[in-house]
């Protein structure tokens, strides 16, 4: 069990980052801080996926003459798409937060 823990350090790091992000979403009062927490959770999941895709002594998945041992490109493609979708969802949630605070200000006046 200890041996598997030392070789799977990146998985454990991504779990800790996920929990930190979850704490921000659950316990911090500011809405923008909650959205930052969602972003930290997102990047931790990406770290986990890239960790799954790695291979010992594997080359970057760009074909070069004479190299045979490449990393699996599929997790990287999935993560690349998710990164760009993340911008759209983050911007949309920020816009919702801004609209909410402005309507609260209007109600107070």
């Amino acid at each position: 069990m200890l041996n598997s823990a030392s070789s799977n350090l990146i998985y454990i790091a991504s779990i800790i980052l996920f929990l930190v992000g979850f704490y921000a979403v659950a316990a911090r009062p500011n809405l923008i801080k909650k959205i930052i927490g969602i972003n930290i959770m997102e990047t931790s999941v990406f770290l986990f996926l890239i960790g799954i895709g790695t291979k010992k002594n594997g080359a970057v998945p760009i074909i070069v003459e004479g190299v045979k041992n490449y990393i699996n490109p599929l997790p990287q493609a999935v993560v690349l798409m998710a990164l760009v979708v993340g911008v759209g969802t983050t911007a949309l949630s920020l816009i919702l937060a801004v609209r909410l605070s402005e309507s609260e200000k209007e109600e107070r006046q």
Binding site: Y11, T54, K56, G58
Partner: peptide, 11 residues
Amino acid sequence: AVFKMPPMGNP
């Protein structure tokens, strides 16, 4: 769940 996973980078 993670302790059940195979070691990272294994071919």
